[in-house]
Design a protein around this nucleic acid. Structure first.
Length: 204
DNA sequence: CAGAGGATCCTCT
DNA sequence: GAGGATCCTCTGA
């Protein structure tokens, strides 16, 4: 896959829709990164929605602005990258108009361009373990907290989201989100979406 | 300013 | 499947 095959998603894609709908529609889309002079791209195969207005699992709940969550309150189409367990950098896409804190976590991707670069970044020689989790996907794509609050709808940036010219067909599975048991009842929300039978999904 | 805990991953067994 | 790594963020005083 080369860069010209990818059409960039406009800012409007990230606004004015339910965050779970955006999480669904992000499946099959492409993350392109151009970081440290290295070009990589990957297809999104697993996402989770987080809604800071109603959802205890969201860092910004309940509409709480802190240094970390501030970017979630900005206009949709930006990155929210945070450090998880002191080790892993998790990549999210902020959605909605300014002031409404909702985001989509990218939980797994399928490598397209730059697979060897990803293997080197991950120090990983097995395809199965390369990008099948949120920390792994971000690391493979070269994304870290350095790339927090980055605009995702312009092609001259470090990261953008695109779609392929000829869209592939796939079935979508829905489940509860992973690792949010602390959120009580909200842990039961069916806000995880993934491409059925895709081998890069973190957990079928 | 100390303490607790986490949207995970890797390495064992 | 269990446990440790590792450090930032938030809380409460």
């Amino acid at each position: 896959m080369i860069e010209n095959d990818v059409e960039i998603l406009p800012k409007a894609f990230f606004l004015n829709k339910d965050v779970t709908e955006i999480a669904r529609h992000l499946l099959g889309k492409i993350i392109v990164t151009y970081i440290n002079g290295e070009y990589t791209s990957a297809r999104i195969v697993e996402t989770e929605a987080y809604d800071g207005t109603v959802d205890k699992a969201c860092h910004a709940f309940p509409n709480k602005i802190t240094r970390r969550t501030a970017v979630m309150f900005s206009e949709g189409g930006r990155s929210y990258v945070y450090l998880c367990y002191g080790i892993h950098h998790l990549f999210n896409i902020v959605t909605q108009e300014e002031g409404i804190p909702k985001a989509v976590l990218i939980r797994a991707v399928e490598p397209l361009a730059g697979k060897e670069i990803m293997k080197r970044r991950r120090n990983c020689h097995h395809d199965r373990q390369l990008t099948n989790g949120p920390g792994k996907a971000a690391q493979a794509l070269g994304i870290s907290t350095l790339h927090n609050d980055v605009i995702l709808y312009q092609k001259n940036g470090m990261i953008y989201i695109g779609c392929e010219m000829n869209n592939l067909k796939f079935e979508i599975n829905v489940s509860t989100r992973i690792g949010v048991d602390y959120a009580g009842e909200d842990a039961k929300l069916p806000w995880r979406f993934y491409i059925k039978n895709n081998p890069n999904v973190s957990k079928q």
